[in-house]
């Protein structure tokens, strides 16, 4: 029996930032999460500000879909004016901002992911170190949880409503990708867009707020026919909810990949294999 050095902390626990007796690579999860979030959201932010190479007939990048406005000229690979809901960017559009369709409806996805219960865990841990990892001490800052500045997180369901609207639009765009100049067919880009909409559906319908709204708020699932139907939907949502983190990452990756694919085809770097 030997005596080790004696720390002052009771129970051997210290409170300084990062203090832990964990012997595993506890920092790895947070570091990978931070790297993934920075990479994917960084890429999509750059693409949103570029506003170029968002269209490769009949494919549209999710970064620009659905397009409220589109630039009439000056942007290579821009979405055709005829495809935009309100046509070309208006004259009052500020000159210091690029004419990017990403500034409108696609922004709804940012609100949805930012307030998502999974992403909250991810960035609270990875960026705010609150906590850095389980049983690892965070910074000695005043903690208010989600009772003060972060109260807005309670409006996640409104971001969900926006995401549901966006989802309908992306399914429409995916369906439209089966038609090129009025002719039915399909290409690799069509499959990429359909998979994008499918993964986003899996992520959205596993949302905790959705799961609550469609049935979770009820205490009785057997009381009436409506509640029984709600229970069926709730169980399916619960299945997706248990995979929410996986679907959050897969759908994020695939949104970026879909954009990248459309950009590559639009620039002529790769040739889309298709039936047209």
């Amino acid at each position: 029996m030997t005596t080790a050095t004696a720390p002052r902390a009771i129970g051997g626990h210290k409170d300084s930032f990062g203090a832990t007796t964990r012997s595993d690579r506890w920092w790895q999860g947070g570091a990978l999460t931070a790297a993934g979030l920075i990479f994917f959201f960084g890429y999509l932010t750059v693409r949103a500000f570029q506003g170029t190479w968002l269209w490769a007939n009949p494919y549209i990048s999710p970064t620009g879909a659905p397009p409220l406005f589109t630039p009439a000229s000056g942007y290579a690979g821009a979405i055709p004016v005829s495809h935009a809901w309100l046509g070309a960017f208006p004259a009052w559009w500020p000159r210091f901002l690029p004419q990017s369709p990403a500034f409108f409806f696609p922004g709804l996805a940012i609100a949805f992911r930012f307030t998502c219960y999974y992403y909250r865990k991810a960035y609270y841990r990875a960026f705010a170190a609150s906590p850095p990892a389980c049983a690892v001490a965070g910074p000695r800052l005043k903690y208010r949880g989600e009772t003060a500045l972060l109260l807005f997180q309670n409006l996640h369901r409104y971001a969900l409503y926006g995401a549901l609207f966006l989802l309908v639009c992306l399914w429409y765009e995916a369906f439209s990708a089966f038609f090129k100049n009025g002719q039915f067919g399909m290409g690799v880009g069509t499959l990429v867009m359909v998979l994008n909409a499918a993964l986003l559906s899996g992520y959205t319908f596993g949302c905790h707020s959705w799961r609550h709204l469609i049935g979770g708020r009820k205490d009785c699932f057997s009381c009436d026919a409506g509640s029984k139907r709600a229970h069926g939907i709730w169980k399916k949502s619960t299945w997706l909810n248990s995979r929410h983190m996986l679907l959050a990452w897969l759908s994020l990756f695939w949104v970026a990949f879909t954009d990248f694919y459309v950009m590559m085809v639009s620039r002529g770097v790769i040739t889309d294999l298709n039936t047209w």
Partner: peptide, 13 residues
Amino acid sequence: WRGDSEGGEFVDY
């Protein structure tokens, strides 16, 4: 960890 609320130390066994 060996000790109480007043203090203590790690002991190896």
